[in-house]
Design a binder for these strands. Sequence first.
DNA 1: GTCTATAGCCTGATAGAC
DNA 2: GTCTATCAGGCTATAGAC
Lengths: 199, 199
Amino acid sequence: MAATQDEPTNSRRAELLRIAAGLFAEKGFKNTTVRDIADASGIQSGSLYHHFDSKESMVDEILSSFQEELFGSYDEILTSTDDARAKLERAVRVSFEAIDRHRHEVAIFQNEADYLGGFDRFAYLAERNAQSRAVWITLLDDGVRSGVLRSDLDIELTYRFIRDTVWVAVRWYRPGGSLTHSHVADQYLTILLDGIAHA
Amino acid sequence: MAATQDEPTNSRRAELLRIAAGLFAEKGFKNTTVRDIADASGIQSGSLYHHFDSKESMVDEILSSFQEELFGSYDEILTSTDDARAKLERAVRVSFEAIDRHRHEVAIFQNEADYLGGFDRFAYLAERNAQSRAVWITLLDDGVRSGVLRSDLDIELTYRFIRDTVWVAVRWYRPGGSLTHSHVADQYLTILLDGIAHA
DNA sequence: GTCTATAGCCTGATAGAC
DNA sequence: GTCTATCAGGCTATAGAC
């Protein structure tokens, strides 16, 4: 996992990571060259290595700091005193919010986790995946137990459907467009909880 | 779009495409080298060029022939005399069946369509995307009009949720595993139509 | 902190022998 | 139809000047 630095001379570094994240999200990690990143930053490729060890270090820092923030939000929900349905709704809303605020990071994780996960350095991605599964399964189990959710659900499949549908929205959601993240979350929760069939 | 050849001396070509499709699906198109494909086929990389013009031609042939088959199935559903709900269910089932029978092709389309779509040669991918949207929007509109589906749905968002959730299953579905494609389709249709909340 | 220059490797594709 | 050998270009990363 990447080291988190303090803030003094940090702004240039952060700016470069922001630019790299946009390119990684748009074109893919392997498909983005250090020259692409340098061009977009207005410097030469060699100069990037004054700031970062390697291209891998860049994506590592992008992903690990994002994950830290996201799982902080999940933990807050799990330890709250809300009922099962409210927790589930909050988890969905927090996820769409993350897409709104960190779409590059989400896209990179969605597209590259499988590939990067093959390297020792990125083993934490698989751990985060397991942690995320644990969060959703807990929420769903609580929902069924408390009678908020139908008891005939295949919990594992339901988890996969929710996870996939929520995160894959990063492919088309654009912050600042005509759709707000909360409208998308509203519509999604309506469909998820009550279905699309006429009652 | 790639030329479709007749069947006489075709089996070696088809075998090589099958191997390439597996690698493209697993590691990504850009990330799979012609040497990878050659190694997996037990030949040298130079020999591949006796069968194919380029790596691009290989993925072109893989994708275009798959799309042809898939859209044939959609057309059958659209022109059938089923009612709106049955058509929607059939479209979902046909899609999960496609994941079962052609998961490499589906995975490649899901992962690479954005990147490949940038080349003239792959412009048909965007057309197929628009065609697919037209199919689903038609089915949903018919559903609302005939009273089978709720009238307060945001049709465009509903379409995206269905499309995404169905196709993204290719990331975890494995043919021959403990889950059958029809079980997955059943569970998915239950959630989609009636929701996960206790009635 | 950025530049120029380049090492060392991997890539897609070609040419000609068998 | 497959092999060997190779070209030309692109890649990450490094070294040293400024």
